[in-house]
Every structure is written in C-alpha cells, then in structure tokens.
Design a protein around this nucleic acid. Structure first.
Lengths: 144, 144
DNA sequence: TTAATTGAGTGGGATAAAGTGGTAAATCAA
DNA sequence: TTGATTTACCACTTTATCCCACTCAATTAA
C-alpha cells in the first residue's frame, strides 16, 4: 500500500527520485498523468491499465468522454524508474502542476500524488481546516 | 495502448514524424480521418477496420447515419509510415484541422488525435478548468 | 563514543536514439 | 522527352537515456 509523505528535489534534467518506500509497490514502470486539483497522479502500470481501459472503452461520440480522456489519457506518460530509483517528469506535466524544484510525494492507497511543495502546503492547510466538516459529510452518505 | 502528448513540426513537404512511442502500436499503415472538435483521428489499420464496419453497417435510411459516415468514412486516408517514422498529412485534412506547423499528437487509448498546437492549447485550457466537474459526472455514472 | 558500512539522494558525462532537413531516384503527366 | 511531383534514402542536430561517481544521513559494531 502507498502511504506517507516525502519531500524530494527535482534536478536540472527534471529527474526526481521516488521515495524508496514506494519503489517495491510501484514496480519498474509507472504511469504519470494529470490529476485533479493541479497535482499529478502516479500509478503502478497494472493499476493504470485497468483505469485506462475503463476510460478508453467509452464511446468518443459523447463530448464528456472525449474531453475527460483528453485530460487523463493524453497527458499520461509511461515512465520507467532508473537504476537508482529516479523518474523523469515530462515537461508538460511539470508545467501543469507548476512544479519548480521542491516536490511532495503523497501516497494515497493505490496511487501517489506529486505536488509542488508550496501548492501542497497551501492546499493542505485548507483541507486541514475543513477536515472536520468534510468528515461529517462523508459520514452522512455512509462513506465511512 | 496509445497515451501521451507530443509536439512535432510539420515540414515544407507536409511530412511529420510520429512520436516514437506510438510507432510500435500503430504499425506500418495507419488511417487518418476527420475527427471531432476540429482535430484529426488516426487509427492503426486493424482498429479502423472494426470502427468502419460498425459505422458502415448502420442503415443509410437515417440522415444522421448518412451524414456521420460521410464525415468519418469519406474523409479517411490510409497512409504509410516511412523508414524514419514520418507520415504525409493529406492536404484536405490539413486544412480541415487548420494545421500550420506546430502539431500536437495526443494518444487516447486506441487512437491518436492530431491537433494544431494553438487549437489544442486553447481547447485543453478549457478542459482543464472543467476537469473536476467532468470527473464528478463520470464518477456519478460509475465510470471510474 | 567513534569509526565503518550501508543505503538513499543528487549530480554530471558518455552514448544512443529520435526528430528534422535536404538530396537523389523514381514515377507520373503533359 | 521533359518537367513536375512524389517517394525513398542519407546526414546532421538535438534530445533523451543510461551509467558511473560523489555526498550525506542513518545504522551498526567495535
């Protein structure tokens, strides 16, 4: 399972090392794509394949399907983890997530979220404030 | 699976190189045709044959069928990828998609979309803004 | 407590591949 | 046959990938 929060630095070549705790779960090849709330999602290849095929099988005749697939599938990149545990973050994803040099990896069960540090801090602060009320809402609809 | 976003340049001879990641999936011969939202669709030959036969078998008595088939089937071109991985984009498709020199290839599961760069940027910006709400919609109908 | 060892994170250089531009050969039309 | 257009081939430039080396922190043993 992917849990925990780690801060690493992006080098000049847009390389960044994956937290070592995640490596055994992620395997050799992972997929990175645009996530919601301006972060990036990273999936182990086999989890990604399930998600991608569910999305990809949907008809292109519906505009919502087309657009969401453009968002998630077109921005996805399969990247492989190098011999010392690093990946290359593709240019367009880097700029989407406004990633500079300090990066946060957040393990969220079956995916890893990749955030620019300052964006993470800001977002996290907001969520922390509202965690109580979000929890109540989830409780009401039987989520927890 | 065809995923990822790549920017390439069309040369004077209307040649453009296919992203190398796509080549093994696409094979030697591909079909390009008019796509929705003013882009072009490119399919591996065998996937195209399936789609084309599904469309072709719909009755021509329905005006919508006739028109959609005119749109998709009539504008389709089979093109072959040359020794260094390039294709020629047919003139009429080029002007349909308003392609100038900078071109975006977007891999969307079983097809590749070909966009003029500026058109893609504009469109994508809109989609990114609405990604949250589209995701919620798809989530509600059990897509993800 | 201190030194040694291990593993993780970071940086840089060499090599290979991808992308692009141009020229020569071939095909077709006038 | 000649000119024009298309196809195939070759070459250069840039980008990406791989590999090696160094630093730092943490853990373990003397």
């Amino acid at each position: 399972m992917l849990i925990g929060e780690y801060k690493h630095t992006l080098d000049e070549k847009k390389r960044i090392s994956i937290p070592s705790k995640f490596r055994s779960v992620l395997g050799k090849n992972v997929v990175i794509t645009k996530g919601l709330d301006n972060c990036l999602f990273m999936y182990p290849l086999k989890d990604w394949n399930i998600i991608a095929s569910q999305l990809g099988e949907r008809s292109f005749t519906q505009a919502d399907n087309r657009n969401f697939n453009r968002f998630l599938l077109a921005s996805a990149h399969e990247v492989s983890i190098d011999s010392v545990g690093r990946i290359l973050i593709p240019e367009n994803l880097c700029s989407f997530a406004k990633i500079k040099t300090k990066v946060v990896f957040a393990g969220i069960y079956n995916r890893v979220e990749i955030w620019d540090e300052s964006a993470w801090d800001t977002f996290n602060e907001q969520v922390s404030k509202n965690a109580d009320s979000i929890a109540e809402k989830l409780g009401q609809i039987g989520a927890i």
